[in-house]
Simulated assay, not measured.
Amino acid sequence: MPYVAKDFGKLVGMDGFSETLLKNHFTLYQGYVANTNKLSDLLGGMLAEGKTATPEYAELKRRFGWEWNGMRLHEFYFENLGGKGPLDPASRLGKAVAAEFGGVEKWEADFRAAGAMRGIGWVVLYQDKLGGRLFNQWVNEHDVGNPAGAVPLLVMDVFEHAFMVDYGLKRADYIAAFFRNVNWKAAEARLS
């Protein structure tokens, strides 16, 4: 059964994100969904034909992680947008990050600092399912840097396509707009 791109059109009109930027971003996401489906079909066909020992199969198998993670990370990102206001320190997520980082403000400063680092990628607040701990992680490429067994709670896209149309090189302004629009309930719902 193929993956279906989700409709995130409700985000259009969100403060700090132009319609052009969002629609371009949605189109990019839809490409990840389409490519995930194409690769699934190709790999399934090669498996059925006994072509798994070929270099083509190996490269498609490697590429699948890029496309699939690109699809999922964008879904997490769009799903944790559309809210208003700061993280409530009294919420379950607020208490969890305060316990781990020594305060909501310290956690947010760390998350923002990771987002401001040079380079392209993602910043993700993860929860280690086994240890229960929370940590902010830089993910360079979709398929590199995702810690095994960790669950993404809050995802911020810091590839240029996420902000250049509206903010040019002013990544800090984009990060401020991101924080004005976090849907904290969606992020908290991912917390176990």
Rank of each mutant, 00 (worst) to 15 (best):
Leu93Ser: 03
Met117Val: 12
Arg171Cys: 09
Leu93Arg: 02
Gln30Phe: 01
Asn181His: 10
Val123Asp: 04
Gly149Leu: 11
Leu81Gly: 13
His142Phe: 14
Leu134Ala: 13
Tyr57Phe: 15
Ala187Gln: 09
Tyr29Glu: 00
Val155Met: 14
Glu59Ser: 11
Tyr29Val: 00
Gly85Asp: 06
Leu134Tyr: 12
Gly70Asn: 09
Gln127Thr: 02
Glu56Asn: 11
Ala96Leu: 05
Glu79Phe: 03
Leu125Asn: 05
Pro147Tyr: 09
Val123Tyr: 04
Trp66Asp: 12
Asn183Gly: 09
Ala114Phe: 15
Thr20Gly: 05
Glu75Pro: 10
Trp122Pro: 00
Asn181Val: 02
Glu79Arg: 14
Val97Asn: 06
Thr36Glu: 00
Leu87Met: 05
Gly115Lys: 08
Arg118Met: 11
Arg180Cys: 08
Val4Ile: 12
Tyr57Gly: 04
Ile175Asp: 04
Ala162Val: 09
Ile120Ala: 15
Glu105His: 06
Tyr57His: 06
Arg92Asp: 05
Gly132Asn: 04
Arg63Val: 01
Arg171Ala: 09
His142Gln: 12
Asn37Ser: 07
Phe159Cys: 13
Gly149Lys: 08
Trp66Tyr: 12
Met164Trp: 07
Val151Cys: 12
Tyr77Phe: 15
Lys106Gly: 04
Ala114Cys: 11
Met164Arg: 13
Gly132Ser: 06
Asp166Ile: 06
Asn69Gln: 14
Tyr77Val: 00
Leu39Trp: 00
Phe178Gly: 10
Glu108Trp: 02
Arg180Phe: 02
Gly16Tyr: 15
Phe178Leu: 14
Met156Cys: 13
Gly82Cys: 03
Leu39Asn: 02
Ala99Phe: 03
Ala48Cys: 02
Gly70His: 02
Asn136Lys: 13
Asn181Ile: 00
Gly131Ser: 13
Ala177Pro: 06
Phe179Cys: 07
Leu81Met: 15
Pro152Lys: 06
Gly131Met: 10
Ala5Cys: 04
Gly168Thr: 03
Met156Trp: 00
Ala114Gly: 02
Val139Ala: 01
Lys23Ala: 00
Leu28Gln: 09
Ala98Arg: 06
Gln30Gly: 15
Met46Pro: 04
Asp7Gln: 07
Trp122Thr: 08
Val123Gln: 01
Phe26Glu: 12
Gly145Ser: 13
Glu105Asn: 12
Pro55Ile: 14
Arg112Val: 15
Phe159Thr: 15
Leu42Ser: 11
